[in-house]
Design a protein around this nucleic acid. Sequence first.
DNA 1: ATAAAATGTTGCATATATACAACAAACCAT
DNA 2: ATGGTTTGTTGTATATATGCAACATTTTAT
Lengths: 88, 88
Amino acid sequence: MKSRKLYNRISVLRKERNISRKELAESIGVNIQTVGYLEREEYNPSLDLAFKINEYFGLPIELIFSPEPLKPLSEEIIELKNKIGGEK
Amino acid sequence: MKSRKLYNRISVLRKERNISRKELAESIGVNIQTVGYLEREEYNPSLDLAFKINEYFGLPIELIFSPEPLKPLSEEIIELKNKIGGEK
DNA sequence: ATAAAATGTTGCATATATACAACAAACCAT
DNA sequence: ATGGTTTGTTGTATATATGCAACATTTTAT
């Protein structure tokens, strides 16, 4: 199926929480290099691994992974604020 | 990583919408047998394929796939109704 | 009742994800 | 400045997802 490259926010989320790759890798039960590959977006996680990552961070899959390049979280926040402001 | 078996609602969603496997397979760009394997839960989709499926149905990934066995949608509705009713 | 379409299943080939080991480079601490 | 942790990277091996072909079984329409 020639699968698309997917984008993710793993490294950002990891840094926000001050977690090392080693910690994350052990928590989700994969090799540390696997986390490296994922952060560099050199390959896509399996769906199961994506679920483990979203369980670990407590966030929906769509917030962590996307077929479209991901904006910085800071930008998303501004856009959401504008959207809410505009509705009033 | 010995990945977990995941559960999904593909066949239910497909029937709700009266779509054949062939139609679904062509729409998401995979082989018809691949849809069969997924519906029988003989293997998990890649994350990319999961995204294509959720784009096709217009539903979040978590509503279609889950690491836990999925209840019938009808039951979920009852539970949601109870939850809303109880909040009043 | 028959044919056509849809589904189930299997086998083999290929692509992709993951494990694991090794090592270099960058980054903190003291 | 030295050493320890973290990160980046690469190579090889294995597991898993997907493609594709073939055929049996079930369902649907006429």
